Lab assay of single mutants.
Amino acid sequence: SEEEEEEWRRAKERGEEIIILGILWKPNDEEAERRIKEALRRV
């Protein structure tokens, strides 16, 4: 969703871990980033 995407962007800017759509994303975690982008597209 729009607000999840916004939340994720803010976490990326701050360089902090975030759990979004049930996926743990850490800074520079390209695999998780790809999965999150896929999940955001499906929503």
Rank of each mutant, 00 (worst) to 15 (best):
R34M: 14
R9S: 08
E13W: 02
W8C: 13
V43S: 13
I36E: 01
W25N: 01
E17W: 10
E7V: 06
R14Y: 08
I23D: 04
S1C: 15
E30S: 09
R10C: 14
W8Q: 06
E16D: 11
R9E: 15
K37V: 12
E16F: 10
E4V: 15
W8L: 15
I36G: 03
K12M: 15
R10M: 08
P27S: 00
K26M: 11
R14T: 09
A11V: 07
A11W: 07
E38D: 13
A11R: 04
E17Y: 07
W25E: 03
R42M: 12
R34A: 13
R34S: 11
N28Q: 08
A32E: 04
R14H: 07
R41T: 11
A39N: 02
G15I: 05
I20G: 01
R14W: 06
R42I: 12
K37A: 07
E4M: 15
E7G: 07
I20K: 01
E17P: 14
S1R: 12
L40A: 05
E2H: 15
I20P: 00
E4N: 09
R14E: 08
R9P: 07
P27N: 00
I19A: 02
W25C: 06
R10I: 09
G15Y: 05
R41D: 11
E2F: 15
E3H: 14
L40T: 02
R10P: 05
V43W: 11
G22A: 03
E7L: 12
E33G: 06
E13L: 11
R34C: 14
E7A: 15
R34F: 07
E7W: 15
L40R: 03
K12V: 12
W8S: 06
N28H: 09
R34L: 11
I19Q: 07
L21K: 08
I18P: 00
K12S: 07
I23L: 02
E7I: 10
V43K: 14
K12G: 05
N28R: 05
E17F: 06
E2L: 15
E4P: 14
A39G: 08
E17G: 05
E33M: 06
L40Y: 00
R42F: 07
I36A: 02
R14K: 13
K26V: 13
K37Q: 08
E2S: 15
G22P: 00
P27K: 00
E2R: 14
E31R: 04
E4W: 15
A39Q: 08
I19S: 05
E5Q: 02
W25Q: 01
E16N: 08
R35I: 07
